[in-house]
């Protein structure tokens, strides 16, 4: 890279720094502060040290049990939706029409679910899945399935997962499409001359070229599914029982529902730490992938 060293560049970055610091650092300090204290109301606080953290990480307590259970559910949820959305997104990207008005039409329809407010996404599926007034629920029940996402855990899970696939597969598909578009035609011509099969073209040309965007897609999807709140909250409210209560839902219940500031703050910090670690891995892999490429090209 031929970037020049210039410390004055800090002046250009300063506005961003101030705006984000105002929104990020002050609130985070508040959280750290709360996580070490206990309160009996009336703005009287007591030092509690690492008590909340001990409780949080101990599955035998109420708080710890709830946290670890919701964490487990959340990881399972993220794994399932990644396993569905990534292959499906690739297939959809490969199925995109090549030219003409249909490209624009497909792009607009694909992007549509991404621009619907998250609670409306929840509302759409809440209505769509209801056995009495929703098309999906009605059809399934008349086909002989006893489908009811309000009372049956499995149905609730299926609904939440299908909803997420509906909502976010387009993101993976659009990213992959952007990656595919950047492949020069010469690659395909060379493959044709070599008589490469369809599968070989995919494995040798398309998949390596999609590497970077796939990485972005997987990590964005992991992050966003790991902090999912609004959609399952609207559809199932975390139920039936606690079966679809993910970490964010649990956190909001503790923080804004019970106003248990200390517990909520401790949970927030651990939750944030997990995200931060994953984010760091993401960043390192991304920047390495970016810097390795020119070296390889130079060596070849």
């Amino acid at each position: 890279m031929d970037k020049t060293i210039n410390q004055k560049a800090w002046f250009l970055v300063l506005p961003v720094f101030l705006v984000v610091a105002f929104s990020a650092v002050l609130p985070l300090m508040t959280v750290v502060n709360y996580s070490m204290q206990d309160t009996f109301g009336n703005n009287q606080f007591f030092w509690n040290g690492v008590g909340w953290f001990k409780e949080l990480l101990d599955p035998s307590t109420d708080l710890g049990g709830r946290f670890l259970a919701s964490l487990g559910r959340n990881l399972f949820f993220s794994a399932v939706i990644l396993a569905i959305e990534v292959p499906l997104g690739i297939v959809v990207a490969l199925s995109m029409p090549r030219e003409g008005w249909s490209v624009a039409a497909c792009l607009v329809i694909l992007a549509l679910p991404l621009l619907i407010p998250w609670n409306v996404v929840g509302t759409i599926w809440q209505i769509f899945g209801r056995p009495d007034i929703g098309l999906l629920g009605y059809v399934l029940n008349h086909l002989g399935f006893n489908y009811n996402y309000v009372s049956n855990e499995v149905d609730a899970w299926v609904t939440v997962i299908v909803m997420d696939v509906w909502h976010w597969t387009s993101l993976v598909a659009l990213l992959c499409y952007a990656g595919l578009k950047s492949i020069p035609d010469a690659y395909y011509q060379a493959a044709q001359i070599d008589g490469a099969s369809r599968w070989a073209v995919f494995k040798a040309i398309q998949l390596p070229k999609m590497n970077r965007v796939l990485l972005i897609a997987v990590l964005l999807r992991f992050m966003d599914s790991f902090m999912i709140y609004t959609e399952p909250f609207v559809v199932t409210g975390g139920g039936p029982g606690n079966s679809t209560t993910f970490v964010s839902i649990e956190l909001v219940k503790i923080a804004l529902g019970q106003f248990d500031l200390g517990k909520a703050a401790a949970l927030s910090l651990v939750y944030n730490l997990i995200i931060l670690i994953v984010c760091w891995v993401f960043y390192t892999v991304m920047t390495n992938a970016g810097s390795e490429r020119p070296v390889k090209e130079g060596a070849a």
């Binding site: 970055v13 961003v16 720094f17 984000v20 929104s23 990020a24 002050l26 609130p27 985070l28 508040t30 959280v31 992050m223 790991f226 902090m227 709140y229 970490v247 964010s248 956190l251 909001v252 923080a255 804004l256 500031l261 909520a264 703050a265 927030s268 939750y271 944030n272 995200i275 931060l276 994953v278 984010c279 760091w280 993401f282 960043y283």
Partner: peptide, 20 residues
Amino acid sequence: LFFWLLSNRMAPAAVYALPF
């Protein structure tokens, strides 16, 4: 700085609701 910015994009909104 770039990483710090990125990590804020990834921070769960639920964490910030109460302090905000």
